[in-house]
């Protein structure tokens, strides 16, 4: 597979995962506001901008609904849903001949709908259903991808992109709820309370799955255990890292084994820390440091995949 094409598929998946995550985080938060006092709500939006607009959270201002609108529709904001969908589609266009017609049709329709002239009116009338629809459309795309595209190398690059993005997004979201706040967000935010823990679970599509495991007994430690260590829940960090580790084995078939060693080593190390980690130790110790190391490891895996399969130096591969 062409390196550029693999790169485009990978980034398409990352942008789509990012858009889907944003849509859900915003929708859940907007809904939760109905049950909160205005002050609480405004303060808690710092967690949303910290999770979604980062590292440009300074650029998003105003009332919660203003913030939500910017993070949804602002074409100029690098982290808005609008921007993510556009970039995903640009990448999909790059590989138009490789993805299925159904996939292209879905992403293209979604892009056209977001860019339609009446979008902001539809948004203003009912922001939450709007965001739900966006998230549903993106889930649909993922389903179409899995059932219409050959599960060859390209599909594996899509999976890798999806889970590398997901692991980072969930780790970041948790980082804003556990331990000290990351240094790059305002520090005058109260520790999360009951409502916010529920919101967090819902933002990770985890509320129902969580209740099946822990009953409706909501506690930070269980939430951390579930969203970090659960091996079977698709939005847990461990689940995502397991997938990352598996997918690496499918990249660049026929390429010299040495080229994937670095990525595999990084992923293996990260996986081991999740396989053998204990939530009590984390809660008692440095959970921030752990969550940040997850994000850092994902970035390193990304870089080593790029170096091995996309932007490699050609000289040792050419006949001399």
């Amino acid at each position: 597979m062409l390196s550029r094409v693999a790169d485009a598929l990978y980034w398409m998946a990352r942008y789509l995962e990012r858009a889907e995550h944003s849509a859900r985080v915003l929708a859940v938060k907007l809904e939760a506001m109905l049950d909160q006092t205005p002050d609480d709500a405004a303060e808690a939006w710092i967690r949303v901008t910290g999770a979604l607009a980062w590292p440009m959270s300074e650029d998003v201002k105003g009332s919660p609904i203003d913030i939500a609108q910017q993070l949804t529709l602002d074409k100029a904001h690098a982290s808005s849903i609008m921007t993510s969908v556009r970039l995903a589609r640009d990448n999909a266009r790059q590989v138009r001949e490789l993805i299925s017609t159904e996939m292209w049709g879905q992403i293209n329709r979604q892009y056209l709908r977001l860019n339609a002239s009446d979008t902001s009116l539809i948004w203003a009338a009912q922001p939450v259903p709007f965001l739900r629809r966006v998230a549903d459309d993106l889930l649909l795309f993922a389903g179409i991808t899995d059932s219409t595209m050959r599960h060859g190398e390209g599909w594996h690059f899509i999976q890798l992109g999806r889970y590398i993005e997901r692991a980072q997004l969930i780790a970041r979201l948790l980082d804003l709820h556990f331990g000290a706040l990351p240094p790059d967000v305002p520090q005058h935010v109260r520790a999360p309370r009951y409502f916010e823990w529920i919101t967090l679970l819902k933002q990770a599509t985890a509320f129902e799955a969580y209740c099946k495991v822990y009953t409706a007994d909501i506690g930070p430690s269980q939430i951390a255990e579930f969203l970090i260590f659960d091996p079977e829940f698709p939005h847990s960090i461990r689940f995502a890292v397991d997938r990352i580790q598996e997918e690496l084995g499918f990249l660049g078939p026929g390429a010299a084994a040495g080229r994937r060693v670095q990525a595999e080593r990084l992923a293996g190390r990260l996986k081991a820390s999740l396989d053998y980690g204990q939530v009590d130790e984390l809660m008692a110790g440095d959970i921030d440091g752990f969550l940040r190391s997850v994000q850092a490891s994902c970035k390193q895996i990304h870089q080593s995949v790029f170096d091995a399969f996309i932007g490699y130096s050609v000289d040792e591969l050419l006949p001399s």
């Binding site: 597979m1 390196s3 550029r4 190398e153 660049g252 010299a256 050609v314 050419l318």
Partner: peptide, 27 residues
Amino acid sequence: RQMGIDLVEGRDLLVHDNVVYMRTTSG
């Protein structure tokens, strides 16, 4: 897509010793 061939851009190709190569994930 109709022909089942790779769609390449200039940056995917390089010429070495008068032979054209494309950069793939497998080399």
